[in-house]
């Protein structure tokens, strides 16, 4: 009688343990999905920002190129003036 009671208790605890292990596995799956959702969200935001930053980079390159050309022209004109000045001296 006592053995039966003990077996039943063990069986019950065993079932509980199996149930807990399954619960953990389900929890792992659930959190995995949740993590993937979060990663997807982060990645989408990063990609969107990257696209905008690339646009900004292009605009900056263009601005730099234009300024560079203008400045180059100024430098050439200055060289011309200096050469003329030297000639006059």
């Amino acid at each position: 009688m006592a053995d039966n009671t003990s077996d039943q208790k063990t069986q019950s605890e065993l079932s509980e343990l199996v149930s807990k292990a399954r619960e953990i596995n389900a929890d792992i799956d659930e959190r995995f999905r949740h993590t993937e959702t979060q990663l997807n969200e982060i990645e989408a935001r990063v990609n969107e920002s990257a696209r905008r930053v690339e646009e900004a980079f292009t605009a900056l390159d263009r601005a730099e190129k234009e300024a560079g050309e203008e400045f180059e022209t100024l430098a050439l004109e200055e060289a011309q003036e200096l050469a003329q000045e030297q000639k006059e001296d």
């Binding site: 050439l76 060289a79 011309q80 200096l82 050469a83 003329q84 030297q86 000639k87």
Partner: peptide
Amino acid sequence: MSDEARYL
């Protein structure tokens, strides 16, 4: 530009 200016 003159040669002098280019040279400069």
